[in-house]
């Protein structure tokens, strides 16, 4: 029995990747939950706007690289993020002006908004592919590892190794900072509180002199920031392909619903639950169990509950369970 090796192995192959993935999902799900609580619809264009934002960051990165700009060991993309955010703020506000604002004015049904977001998604998808094509683009540069498997082995003297990639570490650190800042904003600033008030009770917010259009603008701006960060971090970690971003839609929705639509804290918790469930259930536990089991009882199969191809099935199962047993989510979100 070698529990230490088991721990290192599970950390390396599952915990770190899941934590990074969960952080990316959390940033995305936060955007979904914000739009839901302020604009009150399920934003189907989320994945594709995330892709477009990342595309803008990639463009900026290539430009900076061509200029020979870099920041030590960190990915150059981090420098291009402000540019991506600017592009996406303008894009989302334009989309709001041209599309959603009218439906707000005529007080359209929520599903009309969802449908409109589908149209925006289509357009956004086309624009992204126009710039990036459909194949994978890698834009991670700088030092790839904070420490490698070999370095860890030499340092610890263990048989099992562990590595931490720069992209993963950046993701986790950035996500944590963003979450803290977001909660500070929502709970401490006037603008943040006015958003919460609007989400809580639209009519009373109006009576209190809160300007709904301003709240909407702030919401899209924050969403743009979250989108670009989530998309860039995901792209740094796993490479950029527009279709993968579309496919993030389901886990992001699942995370937001699991946490309780409209609850930011819920979105974060939900995202980590989804990420760890996806990774845990599609993870081959053989190696870890081999270290844990007594001699002679090592598992002979992969000890994988489901093949990786079915990670969406895991997400979907979570979604179904939530819908069946607790449709308001963990942190009682908006009533259904």
């Amino acid at each position: 029995m070698e529990p230490l090796n088991a721990l290192v192995s599970v950390t390396n192959f599952m915990l770190i990747p899941a934590f990074a993935y969960g952080s990316q999902l959390a940033l995305g799900a936060l955007g979904i939950t914000l739009i839901f609580s302020i604009l009150r619809f399920a934003h189907f264009a989320h994945g594709d706007t995330m892709a477009l934002g990342t595309a803008a960051v990639i463009g900026g990165t290539f430009f900076l690289q061509a200029q020979g700009v870099s920041i030590g060991g960190l990915p150059t993309a981090l420098l291009a993020i402000p540019f991506g955010i600017l592009v996406m703020v303008l894009y989302l506000l334009a989309a709001d002006r041209l599309v959603y604002k009218y439906f707000r004015k005529v007080k359209a049904k929520p599903l009309t908004f969802v449908m409109a977001s589908l149209g925006v998604m289509f357009v956004t998808n086309g624009i992204t592919r126009l710039f990036m094509g459909v194949s994978e683009t890698r834009f991670e540069d700088g030092q790839r590892f904070i420490f490698t498997i070999r370095e860890f082995r030499e340092w610890s003297g263990l048989a099992e190794g562990m590595a931490l990639r720069t992209a993963q570490a950046t993701t986790i650190v950035t996500a944590l900072i963003v979450m803290v800042v977001l909660f500070w904003f929502l709970n401490r600033t006037r603008a943040g509180k006015s958003m919460r008030a609007y989400s809580d009770n639209e009519d009373l917010a109006l009576l209190s002199g809160i300007n709904p259009e301003r709240v909407v603008v702030i919401t899209w701006t924050i969403t743009a920031i979250l989108l670009v960060l989530a998309g860039t971090l995901y792209g740094l970690d796993k490479g950029f392909r527009p279709f993968n971003y579309f496919q993030l839609l389901l886990p992001m929705f699942a995370a937001a619903i699991l946490g309780g639509l409209g609850s930011p804290l819920g979105a974060i918790v939900g995202a980590y639950v989804v990420a760890f469930a996806e990774m845990g259930i599609t993870f081959a536990w053989r190696r870890v169990l081999t270290y844990l089991m007594p001699e002679g009882m090592e598992p002979s199969t992969m000890m994988q509950l489901l093949p990786v191809d079915y990670k969406f099935a895991v997400t979907f199962a979570i979604l179904v369970l939530v819908l069946l047993f607790r449709p308001t989510g963990i942190f009682k979100g908006k009533v259904i």
Binding site: K193, A197, D200, N201, D203, I210
Partner: peptide, 22 residues
Amino acid sequence: PQTGNIFPSMTVEENLEMGAFI
């Protein structure tokens, strides 16, 4: 108003702050 006259998920103090928003 008779109903819906508070912001339920906000604290009492925040409710008062929102009252003074203007």
